[in-house]
Design a binder for these strands. Sequence first.
RNA 1: GCCUCGGUACUCCAACGGUAGAGAGGGCAGACUCAAAAUCUGCACAGUGUCGGUUCGAGUCCGACUCGAGGCACCA
Length: 818
Amino acid sequence: MHEAYDVHGVEAKWLPIWDEIAPFRSGRADDPRPKKYVLDMFPYPSGDLHMGHAEAYAMGDVISRYWIQKGFNVMHPIGWDSFGLPAENAAIKRGSSPKEWTYENIAVQKASMRRYACSFDWDRVLHTSDPEYYKWNQWLFLELYKKGLAYRKNSAVNWCPSCQTVLANEQVVAGLCERCDTAVTKKKLYQWYFKITDYADRLLDDMEQLEGKWPEKVLLMQRNWIGRSIGAEVQFLIEGREAPVTVYTTRPDTLHGATFMVVAADSDLASELAAGTTSEAEFKTYLEGVKKESDIDRLATDRPKTGVFLNRYAINPVNGEKLPIWASDYVLADYGTGAIMAVPAHDDRDMQFAKAMGLPVRTVVDCEGEDPSTTFIATTGDGKMINSGPLNGLNKAEAIAKITAELAEKKLGKPAKNYRLRDWLISRQRFWGTPIPIIHCEKCGEVPVPQEQLPVELPDSQGLDLKPKGSSPLGAAEEWVNVACPQCGAPAKRDADTMDTFVDSSWYFLRYTNPDLSTAAFDKQLVEEWLPVDQYVGGVTHAILHLLYSRFFTKVLHDIGMVSFTEPFTRLLNQGMVLMDGSAMSKSRGNLVRLSEQLDTHGVDAIRISLVFAGPPEDDIDWADVSPSGSLKFLNRAWRIAGDVTSAVGVDFTTGDVGLRKITHKAIADISLAVETFRFNVAIARVMELVNGTRKAIDSGCGPADPAVREAAEAIAIALSLVAPFTAEEMWSLLGHKPAVALAGWPTVDPALLEADAVTAIFQVNGKIKARVEVSPSISNGDLEAMALANAEIIAGIAGAEIKKKIVVAPKLVNIVI
RNA sequence: GCCUCGGUACUCCAACGGUAGAGAGGGCAGACUCAAAAUCUGCACAGUGUCGGUUCGAGUCCGACUCGAGGCACCA
């Protein structure tokens, strides 16, 4: 009788041995293997690892371990994204320091990762909260500053009243703070920005390189986020104002249909136009109301349009018509020029506004019978131009071309582009982040901290009040904040804000090539050798923020000659989330599944297999549908096979049972393909088949002594090493090999063994299956057709009718059409 | 409102335009056992969300609808 497979014993046995032989070290200079860089998104250290981490790292590990087996020198590093608000909030709550909390959690997570046995290279670890790391954040900031890509401006920013800090556009989700779900408000503040909009076109156009290599969904989300719109700027003269007002429109063809103009209520232009008119008081009241609106209010659907007539008029440049100017909150101050020409007939929002204010509607595009001026439903499609003077009769594209050219000629307009993307606001009024390396001097203004003074280290949080209060806690660190101006020596103050932690993660993948380098952010030579990342693995939650910022940084670094490539991540795999009973796990929902408990109960390998086998990697997993005990049962079956093998190490496989050998080689080929196409669940199913086939061969086939059984068992061990490292190593050892199975090498497939002895051909009449026949895989079309025509079922199916067509696809099918 | 992705047994999921079922969970029955667990063997359960089209042939391609998930959301 077999003894039971001792899951935890096996774990305890192999971990120290692996520590000793360190199979995943990738940094040896003389390593002859070709390089590959497999990267998992690094975790935030908020407590222990959870099921989501377990899934992500299991997926990344399959890829990493596969390429190692295929003979690559794989760099598979891990680190911690360890600056951020949760540490600060925890510190406030516990009365301790963010640093202490953070590094404690890192230790906990690191221990869990080691237990989980990922193929991480433990020689390459980084923490973004180490001064040795964030020094280079500061260096990068100053590089961007030198290039004019980091700048300060005073403008309305997203403000989270609960976190008491500003937020990037990307951190506002449906009007709520992504961290705490508080309704975000607007606040006018002087803040630091990175000029990502300068790179909008390249961020958009370079996505062509990623086509087919990144999930289509992510590319689409990035495209939408950048939101390039092509249109024209048109100048309108304003009565009683010297300078014209420029509007941006994507539909210059409808210029003759403009019946009014709208300016953003919160724009400077609106206030200026209202000043001194009889509407001024009304406008001011309206503006007060607009300022109080939260994003939530603004986002409410079916919100009635509101606005104030400013008692001013614009002149339509194409026909000289007087257009009333309104101020409204439905026009955004920070998009385009903050002013629009309103064409209610062909824009739904303008139509809503016209209806609410009783403004005229003039149809200028004939859209097949539907007339907006009578239906009061805007039409946005194509059609023949009407009521448009010289444009009449043209279609949309022709009209746009003609009017744009005319406006340009008369210097009344020009083609223009706009982006939904805004500059990246990076200042944060919090403590636990990278200090911004700028000193403010009354005489010299903004003065960059000289490079030799970097890093600007965070002071001890001891004695500082970290509670959110709207300004950085660093401002109160007297000794830290007060310095001499590096330029004139006069008393000056450090910038007390810290950087958005997304700055940290926008370049960390470069640092792994030498995380301990003290003379530069990264070693250019090593980066050229390893980068770009061949395979990036992480959650789709970062589809916009982190990936966009990293792409931006890479392009900036390319432009300053630091890297030769323009895209950081060649391939991207997004794994899904782990749910419980249909919803995200959380303590408050009471559906939290603890990873550590699962590992205790079922063992590391069973949990990893369960997560990988549950479905396609991109799909969410409902843990309620998963059976870790079933996975353990499978591992047991696999393990027993290794114990059953009685042939010696090194036996000649080619003398083994051909039937089993074919199963084995087909399995290896299928598993390779499945892994390379990210169908890990299918890969495991194929291993299961191989285990089942081998079991049968041992029990009722060629028997345990046959060399083919050893070949199969070794293939199982190697295949399992991608996802169940402990079981695989134990099998490998039972089979008489030395560790590590991770470096055993992927078995070579013999193409001759992939040919099946016989295949089932199907005979159809009019696409209906009439018969199935075993045939040779190399049968010719002619022979197969003859067989079919001689087949009794087929003859009966045809029943003497005239044969119109014969489709023959040897060796699979014959279809007779009558 | 706009855009994207997806609906296959009781459940999770496989199927180069060519036999719908690879794999697993769950269920039932049997073997082994004093019994249970483990193990082994066997069985049942769907015709692919709906309608239409293309094709010799459609789960697969196209169109519409429907349901579900996600993204964007007054971006002119």
